[in-house]
Amino acid sequence: MNAPAYNFAYLDEQTKRMIRRAILKAIAIPGYQVPFASREMPMPYGWGTGGVQVTAAILGPHDVLKVIDQGSDDTTNAVSIRKFFAKTAGVRTTTSTEEATVIQTRHRIPERPLKAGQVIVFQVPIPEPLRFLEPRETETRRLHALADYGLMQVKLYEDIARHGHIATTFAYPVRVDDRYVMDPSPTPKFDNPKMDNCPALQLFGAGREKRIYAIPPHTRVVSLDFEDHPFEPYRHDGTCALCGATDGYLDEVITDDRGGRMFVCSDTDYCETRRSAGSVVKAGATSEGGCA
């Protein structure tokens, strides 16, 4: 059997049209999850098939693509997806947030503010923010139709009653343009404020769950909270051991089995850009950090 010939960006044109129509409806109804006939992709469900389908439907030969996972361009799944598009679409790829026109991401939003004209594509495992409160699709669909988000408020309030504060640290629900409650994908809540009034177009693809949703540029995105318990982004209270950044999201790295640890930027492009601009922590210096 000869190797089959695949179309530009892998997907056939009929599939791209179907996904493109879903993307347009998603943009017109910010935060609403548009069902789409997700295809079986040559990579497993749960590994970014939704994001890959959205990226494949929008990507053109003039685009410059960046793919990150956990904020890093060099994690294995990011490498694998970037290679997939380099191969099937022949597009230029980059690790630079600044240079990219399309950024596909899993679990992070880059530290460098996104700009007008850029598109960020999120890989989403469970698009339904109410799913863990109500497993039934028919029921959650009804709740969205009625904009009845009491369940979510009760859940967050119970957190406060039990723990003294809201115990959700990632996939922290947001309300889009004062209407739909939306799952921002499993990004840490540190990234939530970046979604609000963002100049870039934000697209979300959930392949296994067959949903696409969107936030147009300059849209109000509010993290759910209570007046007496306002939303607070969280980061390890530390300094990047490589570039000295004190404002980015940090990964804790365990350095030995005697409790030694250090913090480094989760966004590798941000860290490298800072270091090449001269911000280098001297060798041997480690960040003590600690937790707030």
Binding site: E40, G46, D69, L250, D251
Partner: peptide, 27 residues
């Protein structure tokens, strides 16, 4: 195919979210 993808996707790095949870549990 869906089930195995989602179960096995737990092999992918989740350290960004885990770090967030770690911070919360410590606090």
């Amino acid at each position: 195919v869906q089930a195995t993808g989602f179960v096995e996707h737990l092999k992918l790095p989740h350290y960004v979210d885990f770090q967030a949870e770690l911070g919360l549990v410590r606090r």
